[in-house]
């Protein structure tokens, strides 16, 4: 359970860095320290949000400029022509609104599950596990059993951005890489097939560029 509380004595040591954190210009250890503090401090979180709003108001002031001719064509071709991991040949087309990441993934899990049931006439509810880092919940992972099996993951942690690599550990201890995905403004969602089958997965891990583990989800067997 999380709740806001008034700023305490420990907050004063973070006060001077809240602005820079909100603007994304705080780096290294200071940034890591701040993320840790914000995980438990609603008052400083509110402060960060209000500084971010001011930054946003300034970004909106920048001028609109006509892009080079063909910009939209190149973009849409790139997007719709590219291989898509979340959509298969006979695409499922759920209407996903601007909803919470968790609910998107529940929908995703159910859709994949129902799709599989048509083919295998055998369906079981997706196995969900929390994606955590040092006790903090950063997202949700679903395993959908079937042939093929699917793993779907969402990350919702506003302090992250960049590329993450995902792998699963199997019951025989082997680690199988699944691929990489982008976390934009702290949010990322994706899914991938698991060749070895969902039943053999004991945990899923995301790592950064350097191989450092960012978060793990574990299924009790």
């Amino acid at each position: 359970m999380t709740y806001s509380r008034p700023p305490g004595d420990e907050c004063s040591s973070y006060r001077s860095e809240l602005v820079e954190f909100a603007l994304g210009t705080l780096t290294g250890r200071d940034r890591a320290r701040m993320i840790e503090h914000l995980a438990t401090c609603g008052a400083c979180g509110d402060e960060v949000a209000s500084w971010s709003d001011v930054g946003d108001a300034l970004l909106v002031l920048t001028p609109a400029i006509e892009p080079p001719i063909g910009f939209e064509g190149r973009l849409l071709e790139r997007h719709f022509g590219a291989p898509r991991t979340l959509r298969r040949r006979h695409a499922w087309r759920p209407r996903l609104g601007a909803a919470l990441v968790a609910s998107v993934l529940v929908v995703l899990g159910l859709v994949l599950g129902s799709d599989l049931s048509e083919r295998t006439a055998r369906t079981s509810p997706p196995l969900s596990a929390r994606l955590t880092s040092q006790g903090r919940v950063l997202g949700q992972v679903f395993l959908t059993r079937g042939d093929p099996s699917w793993l779907s993951m969402s990350v919702d942690d506003r302090h992250w951005s960049g590329t993450a690599w995902c792998s699963v550990r199997l019951t025989n201890g082997r680690v199988e890489p699944l691929g990489r995905f982008s976390i934009v403004n702290g949010v990322g969602a994706w899914s991938a097939q698991i060749q070895a089958g969902a039943a053999r997965v004991t945990s899923a891990t995301i790592s950064d560029h350097y191989g450092d583990v960012l978060a793990t989800a574990t299924w009790s067997s």
Partner: peptide, 30 residues
């Protein structure tokens, strides 16, 4: 950069959270 920003927005359209602010602010921040 603008192409890459749109690619990310299109890919992550499902997870936009209106509580974080407007779509324009989100797109500009990316």
């Amino acid at each position: 950069v603008a192409q890459e920003a749109f690619m990310r927005i299109l890919r992550h359209a499902a997870v936009f959270d209106p509580r974080r602010g407007s779509v324009l602010s989100w797109a500009l921040t990316i």
